[in-house]
Design a binder for these strands. Structure first.
Lengths: 148, 148
DNA sequence: AATATTACTTGCAAAATGCAAATAAAAGGA
DNA sequence: TCCTTTTATTTGCATTTTGCAAGTAATATT
């Protein structure tokens, strides 16, 4: 058995490549980072700029500009919160949602391909393992959150 | 059970944060990217510049400059290959090796912390799952390699 | 009402990126 | 062998990305 860090490093690198491939596929040309932003806006419920920046561990001033770019690209919208006018709520435009969905389907295809080389019970074990790992990392204090 | 992509996305994000934390800890101030470069040079046997760039999926011209920076920082050395003088072999300096080792130990501590919240048999299952996953992704054609 | 905090934006200078082109060495073909 | 092609690496250059410091505007606290 290789050491633990090696296992994780290799796995996350491969997953990173997979993610990167999905960005450039199918004509739309977005960066890996933009793909992650689309993903998070799609996932979270009425997220603010600050929330997504925190989730991704990106500096807020940098993120502010990344959003400006994506608004110009017509992938993302922002509208002021009705209750607190300092806050801007992010959402995907129709085009942004389309791109996010395309990427999602592409990722699903890749995963299906990977897991097609595994028995159903192995697949089950692997997915449950990752789920357990995520749960454990979530409870495990300061180790797996953005710095500061 | 959440969907597969979500599981992976969350896991790799957490692992990314963990990695990032290790860069800034303990006084040395290197970027996440530099940490990955140290890791790969340490891991591979007499790697060339091209090899590491390929492993990390980084553009060769960008990588050439990243290495120049790390040589100036006295973390990395390069020396021409004796057999093929186009090639430069990378290695860590004493200081680079020290930093790589510190990061490695820090990562090990984090992993120990995470897995301390798990039963020994769960830990075993999780690690074997990741190993299986890596093996499967390795054989599974074009899906998990750098673009082009 | 004055002060502090929070959410977000902009100025600016530094760093990182990648394409095109250059160099230099090795490999392959006639 | 000479000529062409390929490979490994570097540099020029223009663009993009980054993050700190400082700003605005709105809410929260005192």
């Amino acid at each position: 058995m290789e050491n633990v860090r090696d296992l994780f490093q290799i796995m996350t690198r491969r997953f990173g490549f997979l993610n990167k491939n999905c960005c450039t596929l199918g004509g739309f040309n977005i960066t890996l980072n933009q793909s992650h932003i689309l993903y998070e806006i799609d996932r979270q419920h009425q997220p603010s700029i600050q929330q997504i920046a925190d989730t991704l561990g990106t500096d807020i001033t940098t993120f502010s500009r990344q959003i400006q770019t994506m608004i110009k690209m017509n992938l993302v919208k922002k509208k002021p919160d009705t209750a607190d006018r300092r806050i801007f709520i992010l959402s995907l435009t129709t085009e942004g949602k389309f791109v996010a969905t395309m990427i999602d389907e592409q990722m699903k295809m890749y995963f299906d391909e990977i897991f097609s080389h595994m028995s159903e019970s192995d697949k089950e074990t692997v997915l449950q393992s990752i789920q357990l790992l995520n749960k454990t990392m979530a409870t495990s204090g300061s180790c797996c959150v953005p710095p500061q």
